[in-house]
Nucleic acid binder design. Structure first.
Lengths: 155, 155
DNA sequence: GGTCAAAATTGACTGTGTCAAAACTGCCCG
DNA sequence: CGGGCAGTTTTGACACAGTCAATTTTGACC
């Protein structure tokens, strides 16, 4: 089960190391993890696969190195919502966007209707050559919204 | 010349203090300043107005308090582009967006064609009640773009 | 299996921002 | 026009996220 991950790494010109495999598998099913969350998930448990893949030791610096290498290889993507440490996800290359709850910080992916970056053009590009439009929607998720606002007020 | 600022503060329910006036005036002509930049600008010089307004002492904590108070009063706005400390600006309430240079960090305002938040709706709001769409365009400014890319390639 | 560049670890360190308690000061009131 | 006090600011310690540089370890090719 680790074989595909190893090959994925090598096809991107990266060595297959236990640390890199661990970060990639730790991200499965845990989109938008912070570095600290990944660190805990990797250090305090095996990778949950039940197979031979036990977790390696992983230093903080090592984690940051891995995250940068994987980002540069476009195997993961990093987002930095205001007020949050950097978060990482496996969804890459589809130029999707994010919905963030102002209260609990929950993050939801939002498909990009255009699909490729930049999906949106500014009215005036001020001479920039733009390669990406990053969109973050802010609001309250269903759980955090006060009951009185669950339905839009009718005035 | 300080009178209007004082009144502005009071009309928003905030006391007019030397520190708050200094932050507001330090932001004039210096949009997208970081807290550190404001701190230096206020501590190391008078306010540049040439009038009686000399700068007060301002502690770091005091600066952060002021920035939070002014933000809550909607007198300033805070943005946090990925990879940058928080930045502050006086343009408020027009739901404008930002263009950021990946190389030098230069930030340009981009008018919002819709004008009021949220100017954009996600395809699926996942049950959130959305109040703002924050858009950041990423690219290279004219100064940072390599010469060969100054004109779009013609293939 | 040997070799060596690539990758990981170690430990100190920086920048940005926060907490809590004490001191100060605008501004209202008499 | 001076007292009083809630609202502000200062002080100093601290936390968090991330970075730097030097050393050690390791993956993968021969």
């Amino acid at each position: 089960m680790d074989q595909p991950v190893s090959e994925l790494l090598r096809t991107r010109g990266l060595r297959s190391t236990a640390q890199r495999r661990a970060v990639l598998t730790a991200l499965h099913g845990h989109a938008h993890s912070t570095a600290a969350e990944l660190e805990h998930r990797i250090q305090s448990a095996d990778d949950g696969s039940g197979t031979s893949g036990t977790s390696p030791r992983l230093s903080r610096q090592g984690l940051y190195n891995v995250l940068e290498d994987l980002s540069r290889a476009a195997l993961i993507r990093c987002i930095e919502p205001a007020g949050s440490p950097a978060r990482y996800e496996l969804r890459v290359g589809d130029n999707h966007h994010h919905l963030v709850c102002r209260s609990c910080g929950r993050i939801k992916d939002v498909d990009c209707s255009v699909g490729r970056a930049p999906c949106l053009e500014p009215g005036d590009d001020a001479g920039f050559s733009i390669d990406e439009a990053e969109i973050t929607w802010w609001g309250l998720c269903a759980d955090c919204r006060p009951a009185t606002a669950q339905r839009p007020p009718r005035h």
